[in-house]
């Protein structure tokens, strides 16, 4: 669809307007903008900076500070694996290695070439009782193992394949 980007741009304008172009609302604005683009493109951050009367360096500083914000495009399905203390001692590392191996990823390359998957670690998901925990998009998976995690990925792959047939 050629007008997808127009819709996104109009959404960005609406988000800024909703927050009264208030520079102190920068973080919620960036959060909502990221929902549109799945990451924060440079030119969009510049546009946000300009409309809020902030310097682009300041906006980039905020965007690059928080792990929540991504400066590179993320995949359609974002897998967040907890590597907090509880999950770590329950061997979350093995799960990470299994996911990386399955998808051909590494810490330096967190997103698959087909833009379907992004694998990242977080420092705590606040669900230590379910350790090790993995969240795919919005869905929480508790007490994971390398095998279970790979199975979840395979399930999504199957669904995606089905869409393309």
């Amino acid at each position: 669809m050629p007008t997808v980007m127009l819709r996104k741009f109009e959404k960005v304008c609406a988000i800024i307007e909703k927050h009264d172009s208030d520079p102190s609302k920068l973080i919620p604005i960036l959060q909502e903008v990221q929902e549109e683009y799945r990451y924060l493109p440079e030119e969009v951050m510049t546009f946000v900076a300009m409309t809020l009367g902030l310097s682009p360096a300041k906006v980039y500083g905020v965007a690059s500070f928080y792990a929540h914000f991504s400066l590179i495009p993320k995949g359609k399905h974002v897998i967040r694996l907890c590597d907090g203390t509880a999950c770590h001692v329950k061997r979350s590392e093995g799960i990470l290695n299994a996911l990386h191996a399955k998808l051909g990823l590494s810490a330096r390359m967190p997103t698959t070439k087909d833009m379907l998957f992004t694998v990242e670690t977080v420092s705590c998901l606040g669900a230590c009782g379910l350790a090790p925990v993995m969240v795919v998009n919005e869905k929480v998976y508790g007490q994971m193992s390398p095998e279970k995690a790979v199975a979840v990925v395979e399930e999504i792959m199957k669904k995606e394949d089905g869409k393309n047939v």
């Binding site: 360096a57 500083g61 690059s64 500070f65 928080y66």
Partner: peptide
């Protein structure tokens, strides 16, 4: 009042 440079990353 320029802000050409700022802290980035963490």
């Amino acid at each position: 009042g320029i802000g050409a440079i700022d802290f980035a990353h963490r």
